[in-house]
């Protein structure tokens, strides 16, 4: 049931805009001059965490074209001379697609499973960006900093993910089709 009234409308708008705003904030945070050792090196990977977590919790509020735009913005802001523009966008879109097609293994399962899923998908993202940057600049880039980034972001995942997971719709019976796990009662996974 939809309730009309200024507050209700504001509430709906706020809910719809929240994931995109949080993602934009994390993209900007990537450039913030934090001086914390290790943490500041991993900032570029935090948007991946946001994309993963929101694709789990509220994919209908984080549509693909928005991810494309955010990825290109991230590449424009971060990239140096010669770095490919759009590789993060490609990564974001693929992470979302991977989460969407594996919902039955990721939604409504213990936290450890989600963490493992993030480990796998984030590894794919890092490998993709590294491979494309290497191809694009046609120079062998030392993969160790990228791997360090990956390790740190995987380690801090349990700190940030539960916070982001709170954007889920309040009533579990009333969630939109997209946000539900695809497993049906009584169904067993092959």
């Amino acid at each position: 049931m939809r309730v009309d009234g200024t507050l209700a409308i504001l509430d709906r708008w706020g809910r719809a805009a929240l994931p995109g705003t949080v993602l934009l904030f994390f993209v900007l945070l990537t450039l913030a001059p934090l001086r914390a050792p290790y943490l500041s090196d991993t900032l570029p990977l935090l948007p991946v965490l946001v994309v993963f977590q929101f694709s789990l919790a509220a994919p209908e509020r984080l549509p693909g074209p928005l991810l494309l735009a955010m990825g290109i913005l991230l590449d424009l802001l971060l990239g140096g001379p010669g770095a490919p523009v759009g590789v993060s966008a490609l990564g974001f879109v693929l992470v979302r697609a991977a989460v969407m097609s594996n919902r039955r293994y990721l939604v409504g399962v213990p936290f450890l499973f989600q963490w493992a899923g993030f480990c796998i998908l984030c590894w794919g993202f890092v490998a993709l960006v590294w491979a494309f940057t290497t191809l694009w600049t046609w120079a062998l880039i030392d993969p160790v900093p990228a791997i360090l980034q990956y390790v740190v972001v995987v380690v801090i995942y349990p700190l940030i993910a539960p916070l982001l997971a709170r954007v889920r719709a309040r009533d579990p019976l009333n969630v939109p089709e997209l946000s539900r796990g695809s497993a049906r009662p009584g169904e067993t996974t092959p």
């Binding site: 450039l31 001059p33 090196d41 570029p44 880039i141």
Partner: peptide, 15 residues
Amino acid sequence: RLVGDSVSAYMRGAL
């Protein structure tokens, strides 16, 4: 003033 870091695994710079 330095307003942003442009540090990633592939780049060392600032804004």
